[in-house]
């Protein structure tokens, strides 16, 4: 546990960190006089800090001794909450969409996005592969992307176009903050965006499974990858699979593996899915492909659909977000806010 979570004054915290005491365990065995000497504070103050720290770590010890002994690497919900507060999201470049998603696409989660052909699934995929590279100075993750293309819809021209728009936006942002744009120019070349996307083209479902199995090794060698996009997860699994039970097994195995990767490497996994019709209550309705058991695979499910002449995104499933929908458009520059001035975000 971090000293930054201790309920002590900011100056005390600053002194602790600058003296090299970053974790609670590092101060737990210290004497008050030693701490007072190191931090150049009064002994009374040091006693106070140690009291707070031991109270905190003592409480945690109890929890850890309960769980840690059984499951190695278990986390308390408190720690997870903290981590989540510090984790960043990948923006979709559409602020309305970001709003209903709670800031964007979250790391450590598997997000499934589906919709009819031409709604903008691939566009959103490319946009995320570009946006994950926005440097930390601009509120991004400064990471790289893995793009697994099963359909052949990934077009470099389009990536460059979206990357160019993204670089332009960053320059504008610089100008707004009156920052030295020269310093940041280096990494905003559209071509370098392309270099930071690891593109796998898979032509059969065996290749798809092989690549996903290989990802663990690949990601441990490329720890700066912050998003894995599969466009689409479905395509190779809709050819006549005689054995539907085998299909279900393969798919759920893949989903588990991706979930594990998301957690282990602290990255976002985005699965694009197709839609299909399902006979329900006497009529055909649109639903995401791959059936009911697959519906459990992703943490979040987002459905893209046409509402009149406007594209909309709808949160179908999420453990933490209210179900909501928001409009968006696909422009030459990428995914953006819808221009129509009706009510933007609809909470349900």
């Amino acid at each position: 546990m971090d000293v930054s979570s201790l309920p002590i004054s900011a100056s005390q915290r600053g002194k602790l960190i600058s003296a090299g005491y970053a974790s609670l365990s590092s101060i737990s065995s210290l004497s008050p006089s030693r701490l007072a000497l190191d931090l150049k504070i009064s002994e009374n103050e040091a006693v106070e800090i140690l009291k707070v720290a031991s109270g905190r770590s003592g409480g945690q010890d109890k929890i850890e001794s309960g769980s840690c002994a059984i499951v190695n690497g278990a986390q308390t919900a408190w720690d997870m909450l903290h981590e989540e507060e510090y984790s960043k999201c990948i923006t979709t470049s559409c602020s309305n969409l970001d709003e209903i998603l709670g800031g964007g696409i979250h790391c450590k989660e598997v997000t499934e996005i589906g919709g009819v052909p031409g709604i903008g699934k691939t566009q959103l995929g490319i946009q995320l592969a570009v946006n994950v590279q926005i440097p930390a100075d601009y509120g991004g993750l400064g990471g790289k992307a893995v793009y697994i293309d099963t359909e052949g819809s990934f077009m470099v021209e389009r990536v460059l176009q979206i990357a160019e728009a993204c670089a332009q936006d960053m320059l504008e942002y610089n100008a707004l903050l009156q920052r030295d744009s020269q310093a940041c120019l280096v990494d905003t070349q559209p071509k370098s965006f392309l270099d930071n996307i690891f593109y796998f083209r898979v032509c059969t479902y065996t290749e798809q499974i092989a690549v996903i199995n290989y990802l663990e090794k690949f990601l441990s060698e490329h720890t700066d990858v912050k998003v894995v996009i599969v466009d689409s997860i479905t395509f190779h699994f809709r050819q006549d699979f005689e054995d539907m039970a085998l299909r279900t097994r393969l798919l759920s195995g893949m989903a588990l593996k991706l979930m594990k990767l998301a957690k282990k490497f602290n990255l976002a996994v985005v699965l694009l899915n197709q839609v299909t019709t399902k006979f329900k209550e006497g009529s055909f309705q649109l639903t995401l492909a791959l059936g009911d058991s697959w519906a459990h695979a992703a943490t979040n499910r987002i459905i893209l659909y046409w509402n009149g002449n406007e594209r909309h995104a709808f949160i179908d499933k999420s453990p933490s977000l209210p179900s909501a929908s928001s409009p968006y458009t696909v422009t030459g520059r990428g995914i953006r806010n819808s221009t129509s001035n009706c009510k933007r975000v609809k909470l349900m």
């Binding site: 077009m155 470099v156 021209e157 460059l160 071509k191 392309l194 270099d195 996307i197 690891f198 593109y199 796998f200 083209r201 898979v202 290749e207 092989a210 690549v211 199995n213 290989y214 690949f218």
Partner: peptide
């Protein structure tokens, strides 16, 4: 063949295209 070989690097800066035989139609399809 290994999965690592499915990685394409570096990506070409452009997709190859086949002309339609008319500059106006080509412009529509970039």
């Amino acid at each position: 063949m290994t999965p690592g070989e499915l990685l394409r690097r570096p990506l070409p800066a452009q997709t190859a295209k086949l002309t339609l035989g008319c500059p106006i139609l080509d412009r529509l399809l970039r």
